[in-house]
């Protein structure tokens, strides 16, 4: 599989409820240096790249931070094993 096969797909939870589109794949880097998938970042509307404002921590300009927060509202991380990729 390629990352591009996952990104942009609409995913559902175990009950078949729609979660949104996949915006990013989040991996934890293990002791051996291999990144293992732990979560999926889903977003209700946006299709493209999230410009980096989805990461925790402060990033300016203030207007952009607020604008990105509003445009991407509802964006959340879902643990990998709770996501159904039909």
């Amino acid at each position: 599989m390629l990352a591009s096969d996952y990104l942009g797909r609409t995913v559902r939870d175990a009950d078949g409820q729609e979660l949104g589109r996949v915006a990013d794949l989040i991996a934890q880097v293990g002791e051996d240096g291999t990144p293992r998938m732990v979560a999926v970042l889903v977003t209700p509307r946006w299709r493209g790249r999230l410009l980096g404002y989805e990461r925790p921590g402060v990033q300016g300009p203030w207007v952009f931070d607020k604008l990105a927060g509003w445009l991407h509202r509802g964006t959340r991380e879902i643990p990998w094993d709770e996501v159904r990729w039909e």
Partner: peptide
């Protein structure tokens, strides 16, 4: 040397 957590779309692509 590798961000943790690693965001595949943001950090790599």
């Amino acid at each position: 040397k590798i961000p943790d957590p690693l965001r595949v779309d943001f950090h790599l692509l």
